[in-house]
Design a protein around this nucleic acid. Structure first.
Length: 558
RNA sequence: GUCCUGGUAGCUCAGCUGGAUAGAGCAAUGCCCUUCUAAGGCAUCGGUCGGGAGUUCGAAUCUCUCCCAGGACGCCA
């Protein structure tokens, strides 16, 4: 049942001769002390030829079942706190981890592409955002009832592999490659660039080798497979640290090397291709840059592959929606992709959503180490975990399995920091701030959860007598907040924005901590204590499920 | 140059389908552990919501314009 809808219906019954249902907007007041819900009556004034406040008064007279106030043109509505508390808390405890689930996605399929690191390069901090946002969205879709396919579109193709193979053949160190494969590959890749800046023929040679790879030449392909294998093993370590489960598909760009010919043919038969400066393009109108399909040397491009991939995914997964968790800088690319699919007559192209996100900045600039190399995600995580460990040694030295706990806290801090801000904004990556573990952070929420957990031993399964309770402000605030959970899960999916959920969880933790600080949970009075413990249990369920949905573990102790 | 984002407290950010005194966290200052985990809570300090104009009963929120920052603009991905 939905209280807000109920109120809306009840008000509509009173006003239906003047206004439409859609005009009734029930909002939550900024200040929760003012009311549980509020109805601004300003927009009705013209139609009803009355002042907003008179309208509010009139509704107040006729609206039964709620306590109401008419102030400043608002009708402030208070719900029955005891009745609602019982309903909300009992629902949560009964539904457990299913609380907050929605069913509107049932029977529908979502494909999500995310993470997508580049083979033969270290897993850089630049791929963190795609990874954690995609993972959270996957979970959110599941919670809304969708079937989800996760896709790791590996960057495993392109002329850089020609360079790499050339470099390996000339300067590769077999031992180093076995010990620290990605570092060695990085080393020879850098070496290649140093050499080629003085010796441009090397680039020519690299292109020739890449052509061999495209043609499936055995020796070259074997080497490429090997690089890919090393990379995936290395990536898996990072995924394990992050707690990211296996993807349903690891088909990267190379997977489409044989499928692009058909795309080009199809574009030709549909008369969409044009030659321009020797290259083949699809024109997309006056205000849009044309889509480049084929280079003048006959080679294909990123967009060509993505068209093939989109069609392939539609065929394989028959998705209702297809998400691409890729940075802001590729907005134009995805606009072009959708427009080309539209021109090809694929109506489902409109169900492709580019889930763009902002860059990671450091001091307002693109992130890199002093030498201009990429910052490795793994290193950042390890640093975060070490710091968490120091905290634990200092604050709870007697805990068991400190390693596991510090992993969860450190990684949780990094993930939460990434998810808490509006997706498309650039985020300032400041390890110092992230590792403060205070305030609006993952560990703050984890800490709240752990505190609750230590109380739950006192909980008994008895029937609470609600008539004898006083539901005070602290209790009501957290209970009413918990009631919003499924709305938040819905909004997070609709906006494809995990920050919606992350911010909500901060609110939940704050509201709970206020209760905790101001009220003794286990006091002398049994009925009252058990009621507060029920709030605790409900809160812990929501926090745990919310955090897990974001892809963050919660801790029983810390 | 064209297009897209963003500009809110010293810092990092919420709030933006227009609504009642602009909110958090960090930093600063001062409180609260003989009582359930102080990684917590409370209080104080801190804002011409980039500038200007407009629409409106009402604008941080919508429109226009200017300024500033970042990004994207055919043979990379």
């Amino acid at each position: 049942m939905n209280i807000k809808e109920q109120i809306k219906n009840d008000i509509y019954d009173i006003l239906k001769e003047y206004i439409e249902m859609e005009e009734i907007i029930i909002e939550k007041p900024k200040d929760r002390k003012m009311a549980d819900y509020a109805l601004p009556c300003f927009t009705f004034a013209k139609k009803m030829h009355k002042s907003p406040n008179d309208i509010a008064l009139m509704i107040k007279e006729n609206l039964k079942g709620y306590q109401t106030d008419a102030i400043n043109g608002y009708l402030n509505i208070f719900v029955d706190k005891k009745k609602l508390s019982k309903m909300i808390l009992e629902t949560i405890v009964e539904q457990q981890e299913n609380y907050g689930n929605n069913s509107f996605g049932e029977g529908k399929v979502v494909a999500v592409e995310y993470s997508s690191p580049n083979i033969a390069k270290p897993f850089g901090i630049g791929h963190l955002r795609s990874t954690v946002i995609g993972n959270a969205l996957k979970n959110v879709c599941l919670k809304n009832g969708y079937k989800v396919y996760s896709i790791n579109y590996l960057g495993d193709y392109g002329t850089q592999f020609g360079k790499l193979i050339y470099a390996y053949n000339h300067w590769g160190d077999e031992k180093a490659l076995n010990d620290k494969p990605l570092d060695e590959l990085k080393r020879i890749y850098v070496k290649f660039h140093e050499e080629s800046s003085e010796n441009p023929e090397l680039d020519e040679e690299a292109r020739r080798i890449f052509k061999q790879l495209e043609d499936g030449e055995l020796e070259v392909t074997a080497l490429w497979e090997r690089f890919k294998d090393y990379s995936l093993k290395e990536f898996q370590k990072t995924y394990e640290l992050l707690g990211i489960s296996k993807f349903d598909s690891y088909d990267g760009e190379s997977h489409y090397k044989d499928k692009m010919g058909a795309v080009v043919e199809e574009l030709e038969t549909k008369n969409l291709l044009e030659f321009d400066d020797g290259a083949q393009i699809v024109r997309l109108g006056d205000n849009m840059n044309p889509a480049l399909i084929k280079r003048s040397d006959g080679g294909t491009l990123y967009l060509t592959r993505d068209i093939a991939a989109a069609i392939d995914r539609k065929q394989r997964f028959n998705f209702d929606e297809s998400l691409y968790v890729v940075g802001n800088e590729q907005i134009l690319h995805f606009q072009q992709l959708k427009m080309v699919l539209d021109k090809m007559g694929y109506e489902w192209g409109k169900n492709i959503h580019h889930i763009s996100f902002g860059m990671m900045l450091q001091d307002g600039k693109k992130m890199s180490t002093r030498q201009g190399k990429t910052v490795k995600l793994h290193d950042v995580l390890v640093e975060a975990i070490d710091l968490a460990k120091n905290y634990i040694e200092e604050k709870s030295p007697n805990l068991d399995n400190k390693d596991e706990i510090s992993r969860k806290i450190g990684v949780g801090a990094v993930i939460f920091n990434d998810l808490k801000n509006y997706r498309t904004n650039d985020i300032e990556f400041n390890l110092e701030d992230i590792l403060k573990f205070e305030g609006n952070t993952g560990p703050y929420i984890q800490y709240t959860y752990a505190r609750i957990n230590s109380l739950l031993d006192h909980k008994k399964n008895i029937n609470i007598n609600y008539d004898n309770l006083v539901v005070n402000e602290y209790m009501w605030n957290i209970i009413f907040k918990l009631y919003e959970f499924s709305d938040i899960i819905y909004k997070t999916k609709i906006n494809f924005d995990p920050s919606e959920l992350a911010k909500y969880l901060i609110d939940v933790a704050q509201d709970f901590n206020k209760l905790y600080a101001n009220e003794k949970i286990v006091d002398g009075e049994e009925n009252n204590s058990q009621f507060k413990l029920l709030i605790c249990e409900a809160t812990s369920i929501v926090i745990k499920e919310g955090m897990n949905t974001l892809g963050i573990d919660v801790l029983e102790q810390m």
